[in-house]
């Protein structure tokens, strides 16, 4: 078999390391880039380089930012008394897209996962507590995922934040839009019934 030119081979190897991309997809992308206009390829290369060089974690909320503080923490229009705690920076994008939440965020960068050996020291939990101690926060909304790990994290946070005299709330759990009641799991259905609201 003819060996591919080494820069192509190298790119295929690197692309294959990305999540969801196997060797075939990697090869397709590599050959696509080889034929694409130079400015498009250079643009992609620059975007990848800048991704690491020009971003860092916001020292306040640990979101990814290219400024001193992220644009949420530095905004004057935000309600500084409200902090929504999420697992990943992507979760901020999802909640911000709604347009209905106007408070601040705090990114934990994961959830407590005892079976994988991920504990509180691997997450930005101490940083959250320090932040709560120095700023006038009246409510912390815990928006960790409704998984076993997310629940353990939420319960732990409630236990350590409540003594600070700050109100702790958890995202409501219920039935997603577009599903059928027939397929709901017991935990979700129990929460949906307990948390029913008058309308």
């Amino acid at each position: 078999m003819e060996k591919q030119a080494s820069p192509v081979e190298r790119l295929i190897q690197e692309l294959s390391k990305l999540p969801g991309i196997g060797p075939k997809s990697a090869q397709r992308i590599a050959y696509h880039l080889l034929r694409a206009p130079a400015e498009q390829v250079n643009g992609l290369a620059l975007a990848i380089t800048n991704l690491r060089e020009k971003t860092h974690l916001c020292p306040e909320c640990f979101n990814i930012t290219d400024g001193d503080l992220c644009n949420i923490c530095s905004s004057e229009k935000r309600d500084k008394g409200l902090i929504c705690v999420v697992e990943q920076p992507q979760d901020i994008t999802v909640i911000s897209r709604l347009g209905s939440y106007n408070g601040l965020f705090h990114v934990l960068h994961g959830a407590i996962s005892p079976t994988e050996g991920i504990g509180t020291s691997n997450l930005k939990i101490d940083e959250l507590i320090k932040r709560l101690e120095r700023s006038p926060v009246r409510e912390v909304i815990i928006a960790t995922n409704p998984t076993m790990e997310g629940e353990q994290t939420a319960l732990y946070l409630k236990k350590i934040i409540s003594p600070l005299g700050i109100k702790v709330t958890r995202l409501a759990r219920g039935l997603p839009f577009g599903t059928e009641l027939e397929y709901a799991d017991n935990a979700t259905l129990t929460h949906a019934i307990e948390g029913r609201a008058e309308f």
Binding site: P114, E151, Q152, L155, D185, N186, T190
Partner: peptide, 17 residues
């Protein structure tokens, strides 16, 4: 059975895991 107490109580959950 989804063993709800394991999800709603930190200590029970830690034992379960």
């Amino acid at each position: 059975d989804s063993f709800l107490p394991l999800r709603e109580d930190l200590t029970r959950g830690a034992y379960g895991l």
